[in-house]
Write a protein that binds this DNA or RNA. Structure first.
Lengths: 137, 137
DNA sequence: CGGTATCCGGAATGATACTG
DNA sequence: CAGTATCATTCCGGATACCG
């Protein structure tokens, strides 16, 4: 088999996309790229829980992150339509971050991913569900 | 709020893990790391469809990949328990790759991810569901 | 408070050549 | 056929200093 591209990618009037192994891989790559980055998942899970957070609150909630990385990852998430940035014209400045509607719908997807990780064979699961901790029982 | 770690991560006898924003973010990062890499998703979707592929078949099925990168990504996927490598002691050598049972169960998870991407606002979706193509209609 | 600007080291990726 | 080995490059991410 190993077709190169013999299918149409888009069903014009229907709602579902048709994938080849190639296009599916390509698309999945693009999606994963949105979540890649040393701190993005941390940021997202903070926003899943807290809904609305100031820049400084995120900074404090995520130990070890630098201002540079925080703003960089936030900007990328914003550009990818996952988070919204609200700057209040005040002195001192106040900027708040929250998930877009689409960003919120990512929560159950990531939950599936965690569930998948939990279903891993014991030795692998230990490395996925937090490297430290695990000392319990 | 912004708790540091006030919950236990592991329910000893129950089946589900308890997450804090921190531990969930950390775990999700670990899981994403398994899928990161320029070619891993491509490899996985080839195996989702073809089930069993030789090294050279994967090489031909994935245009642009080098032998170095193919073997590297395969080794990582193998170390992460997603694919299985079977070397047949023959001359010339024959090596086959296939998904582990756990690796197979990743398929619906990635399908969810693609479905999420399809639900993105139009302008964003265009960049996720294949950068080229899109010319249809 | 919420950023920018710069420099730097290491990792990830790519190109190319060689081998059991 | 299924890899290794080596070198070049590009891409983050971290550290530090400064700004409206």
């Amino acid at each position: 088999m190993t077709s190169t591209d013999e299918n149409v990618r888009y069903t014009p009037k229907g709602k579902r996309v048709t994938y080849t192994p190639q296009s599916a891989g390509q698309s999945a790559q693009n999606v994963i790229r949105v979540l890649e980055g040393r701190w993005k998942l941390m940021i997202l899970f903070q926003l899943f829980v807290s809904k609305l957070l100031r820049f400084s609150e995120l900074e404090r909630a995520i130990p070890g992150i630098s201002q540079k990385m925080l703003i960089q990852q936030l900007r990328q998430l914003e550009a990818d339509g996952v988070v919204t940035r609200i700057a209040h014209p005040e002195v001192p400045p106040r900027v708040e971050y929250l998930l877009t509607e689409w960003g919120q719908s990512l929560c159950p997807v990531l939950d599936n991913l965690l569930t998948w990780a939990e279903s891993a064979p014991d030795d692998l699961r230990a490395r996925l569900i937090d490297p430290d901790a695990m000392s319990d029982q």
